[in-house]
Computed example of a mutant assay.
Amino acid sequence: MKLAALVAGETSGDLLAGLLLDGLKQQWPTLSTAGIGGPQMAKRGFQAWWAHDTLSVHGFGWEVLRRYREIVGIRRQLKERLLQHHPDIFIGVDAPDFNLDLEADLKAQGIKTVHFVCPSIWAWRPERVEKIKRSVDHVLCIFPFEPELLARHGIAATYVGHPLANVIPLQPDRVAARAKLGLTTNDPVVAILPGSRESEIRHLALRFFQAAALIKQAQSATKFIVPAIPSLRQKIEAAARASGLGDDVLQVIDGQSHTVLAACDVTLIASGTATLEAALFKRPMVIAYRMGAVSWRIMRRKKLQPWVGLPNILCRDFVVPELLQDVATPQALAQEVLCWLGAINSEPEKIAALEQRFTALHHELQRDTPKLAAHAIAQLLQN
């Protein structure tokens, strides 16, 4: 194989694609890679024709429509460029709304297509399964139950494990993480992760910081730390100031989300991939999410499971609380965080049980993802 084209949207997709590129480069050392990607992919020699965050869209209503023309234009230009270069394989990393249509067009022109991360047809939008079947030659799955589900619909798939399970240690070093962040071992620490998209910051950040202010009133020794995406830092700091939190209480840093999750006692966190990271760090958490009213009504109608947060979906139980949309008030968020903080001292068995669930989950997701993914792609190309 000489050329592989990839498209990864958002920070999580960039991370997954970067790990995938490790496997591809080991299998094909002289491989050239290009398409849409971010800094993790660039570290592996990836040539980004567009930056990964150009695909960052949130919701369904106006929030999507206002960027629809731009994104469709990028997809059209990318398709033309790929048909001109005719890569040996195209790999769409997550971003199914963008990638599946592109994959269908490329597959129709004889280009092998792979989708890395099975769209969540088991959680919502099951109608996507026919589109997946039409668009891709193979799906690389990060959760163990997905290949069997896809096989029922005649879609070839391979379970490759979740890359994060190998990045995050089974036993995180909390002492070292706290030392790196200037925290003592006795500080009660709450990590606040309001999301990686501008729209998530708009919908969640102020509520999260208002909840932090209430937690501070109840437990004055509590410290709060926010690992911010640098491009969103100003908006996050503005929301923190609006809530009345000062620099002596709240620490905003650029990135280092894994260090922050290793260091904290509890995290108040937006639903998404970060919740799985928090579970792999064995951290108690309160999951929240808010979106525009139209988007919320559409999502609620299409939802197939009682859970939204990945830790709960994978454990098939409400092992951590979820507060969604109007229920995600500062008061309710604060109360749930305080319950976890109280349990750390008064109910150690509750914390230990949660850590055991998350440790079992960690083992289940731990595979040699780059090697398994590259092998599946090699098999596809041979066939």
Rank of each mutant, 00 (worst) to 15 (best):
D14F: 11
L55D: 02
A279Y: 00
I201E: 07
L304A: 14
N166Y: 03
P370Q: 12
A205Y: 07
Q251K: 11
Q47V: 15
V139F: 04
L276F: 00
S12E: 07
D248Q: 11
I344Q: 11
N186K: 14
E198L: 07
G154L: 06
A270M: 01
R125T: 08
F208Y: 15
I36Y: 01
K302W: 12
C264F: 03
G182F: 01
G342P: 06
G73M: 10
A42M: 12
A274H: 03
A191N: 06
L250F: 08
A228Q: 04
C141H: 07
H85M: 15
E237K: 13
L170D: 12
M285L: 15
S12K: 10
K43N: 14
A278F: 01
V308G: 09
A151Y: 02
A279K: 08
M299E: 09
A360Q: 15
T158L: 04
L214A: 12
H162R: 05
T359R: 14
L6G: 05
E322G: 11
I36G: 03
G246M: 05
L31C: 06
G23F: 03
L310C: 00
D326W: 11
E237C: 14
G13T: 10
I201Q: 10
V139R: 03
A278N: 03
L381G: 00
S346I: 09
Q77G: 14
M291R: 00
A262I: 00
T222I: 07
Q331H: 13
M291L: 05
L268H: 02
Q325G: 09
V294I: 15
L21T: 11
A374R: 02
G59F: 04
T185K: 12
K133S: 10
R290A: 14
A151V: 11
L204S: 04
G244A: 03
F318E: 14
V190K: 05
L20R: 04
I142M: 13
P306Q: 10
D173W: 03
P147W: 06
F145Q: 13
